[in-house]
Computed example of a mutant assay.
Amino acid sequence: MSQQFSHFDEQGHAVMVDISDKDITKREATAYSSIEVNDAVFEQIQRGDNKKGDVFGVARIAGIQATKQTSNLIPLCHAIPISKVSVQFDWADQQSSPYQINITCTVKTTGQTGVEMEALTGASVAALTIYDMCKAVDKTMTIGPTYLTSKSGGQSGDYVRD
């Protein structure tokens, strides 16, 4: 059975999905991204002496702001009220280079459409902000993978990535 894409009309033109008949429900989504950094960036972040400031603090604010701008970045996304956003960072392994920073962005709303794109955007922009703040020290940083880890609410039900 093939799945029909909801962002196209009968003529194949891109359209914004009509959510006017959807129920208002609590919705939550969590996305993951990562960035690999070298020894110098790891040490700089650990010491808190990056010349541009608090790397995780600035990246957290950037990720939160990005969730609120998703509909301006992704053409067919609805502008939705965001109830809560959290952006968390942790080191995957502190034993050897490259060091990996794990980024988790969780977004909540009560509305007629989900917040998966907002969570993905928040995690992605947080990773990009870390790159921007540290690129003078390490231009070889690698971002990704980025993916949805879970979502709840809405017609399609809950999802948890294996």
Results as ranks from 00 to 15, higher is better:
S2D: 11
Q3N: 03
Q3L: 15
Q4S: 10
Q4T: 10
F5Y: 09
S6P: 01
H7K: 02
F8D: 10
H13T: 00
H13K: 13
A14T: 11
V15C: 03
V15P: 05
S20P: 01
S20L: 02
S20M: 02
K22I: 09
I24P: 03
I24W: 00
K26H: 07
E28I: 04
A29S: 10
T30E: 12
T30P: 08
T30N: 02
A31Q: 09
Y32S: 07
Y32D: 09
Y32V: 07
Y32F: 15
V37N: 06
N38H: 02
A40T: 14
V41H: 01
V41F: 02
I45C: 11
Q46S: 14
R47T: 12
G48H: 10
D49L: 02
N50E: 14
K51D: 13
K52W: 01
K52S: 15
K52I: 04
D54V: 09
D54T: 12
D54L: 07
V55L: 01
V55G: 01
R60A: 12
R60Q: 15
Q65T: 08
K68Q: 15
Q69Y: 04
L73T: 05
L73W: 03
I74A: 05
P75Q: 06
P75R: 00
C77Q: 05
C77L: 05
C77N: 11
C77W: 04
H78V: 12
A79R: 06
I80P: 02
I80L: 15
I80T: 14
I82K: 03
S83R: 10
S83F: 03
K84D: 14
V85N: 08
S86N: 14
V87T: 05
Q88Y: 03
D90F: 08
D90Q: 13
D90P: 00
W91E: 12
A92G: 00
Q94F: 00
P98G: 06
P98M: 07
Y99F: 14
Y99V: 13
Q100W: 01
Q100T: 15
N102A: 05
I103T: 08
I103L: 12
T106G: 08
V107L: 08
K108C: 09
T109K: 07
G111E: 01
G111L: 04
Q112F: 03
G114N: 10
E116Q: 11
L120C: 09
G122C: 08
A123G: 03
S124Q: 12
S124Y: 05
S124A: 13
A126V: 03
A127N: 08
D132F: 05
D132K: 01
M133Q: 08
M133K: 04
M133W: 06
C134P: 05
K135T: 08
A136Y: 04
A136H: 07
V137C: 00
D138K: 10
D138Q: 04
K139F: 06
K139V: 12
T140S: 15
M141C: 14
T142R: 15
T142V: 15
T142K: 15
G144S: 06
T146K: 10
Y147F: 15
L148H: 03
K151T: 00
G154A: 03
Q155A: 12
Q155T: 13
S156R: 12
G157K: 02
D158P: 03
D158E: 14
R161N: 02
D162I: 00
D162Y: 00
D162E: 14
